[in-house]
């Protein structure tokens, strides 16, 4: 009586499976030149309240205050006057303020900021934040960057690492994926430490093209 059973099995296998629903992704479009009044209104003097400014507030004691400044340069080496940069980072203990990060105690840390190149001299952006901790045992401290601008049809992802974390950077699995000659494009250079709170200032420039073209990620 095994034959009919086999037959039935064959029949079962032949039933076409239903393709899971897959909707097409909405295409990206450029942020354009006119995003300031809604995305970075305060910094550019527009009468609108944005969800966030260029400052990430610490929620713990004994954090390292940092300032990161830099330019975003086009393929001709000119500083870009209308780039938008978003920053996403962990707190000083490496915890993200997000439900996917299951570690407790991190709910009040927002970890997000927006800055634009623009009115400041030399078209520099400025982020005021705290030094993030390492998010896991492998990765070096870093800040995730999402970059937008007129002339960029889809946003770009990169990371800011820190020049004073050389040992951790040397072990970082993401930096290890990048040819050595290009790794420096992801490392913010410590300029100085100053003030009562010993704020550490870093310089991090982004180059869209050319010899120093910044490494951008796909994930």
């Amino acid at each position: 009586m095994s034959k009919p059973q086999d037959k039935d099995n064959t029949k079962t296998r032949a039933v076409p499976t239903v393709e899971p629903l897959r909707l097409g992704q909405t295409p990206s479009q450029t942020v354009g030149p006119f995003f300031h009044p809604v995305l970075v209104p305060e910094a550019f003097g527009y009468p609108f309240q944005g969800i966030v400014g260029n400052r990430i507030e610490a929620c713990e004691q004994n954090t390292q205050a940092i300032v990161i400044e830099g330019q975003v340069c086009d393929g001709a080496g000119r500083p870009i006057e209308d780039a938008l940069i978003e920053f996403w980072q962990a707190d000083s203990q490496g915890r993200y303020g997000h439900p996917a990060d299951g570690r407790g105690g991190n709910t009040s840390f927002r970890g997000f900021a927006r800055a634009a190149t623009g009115p400041a001299p030399h078209h520099r952006y400025r982020l005021e934040s705290i030094k993030p901790g390492a998010v896991d045992s492998a990765q070096a401290p870093h800040i995730n960057v999402v970059l937008f601008m007129r002339g960029l049809l889809r946003h770009l992802y990169t990371r800011i690492y820190f020049s004073d974390e050389a040992a951790a950077n040397a072990r970082d699995p993401v930096l290890a994926l990048i040819p050595e000659a290009r790794r420096a494009t992801l490392i913010a250079a410590l300029q100085e430490t100053q003030g009562d709170d010993k704020t550490a200032s870093y310089r991090f420039d982004i180059h869209m093209q050319g010899e120093k073209e910044t490494v951008f990620f796909d994930f």
Binding site: W88, A90, Y96, A100, D101, V135, D136, Q139, H142, N144, R159, P173, V174, L177, I178, V215, F216, F217, D218, F219
Partner: peptide
Amino acid sequence: VPIPASLS
């Protein structure tokens, strides 16, 4: 550059 997705 493709990178593995971590918590970041």
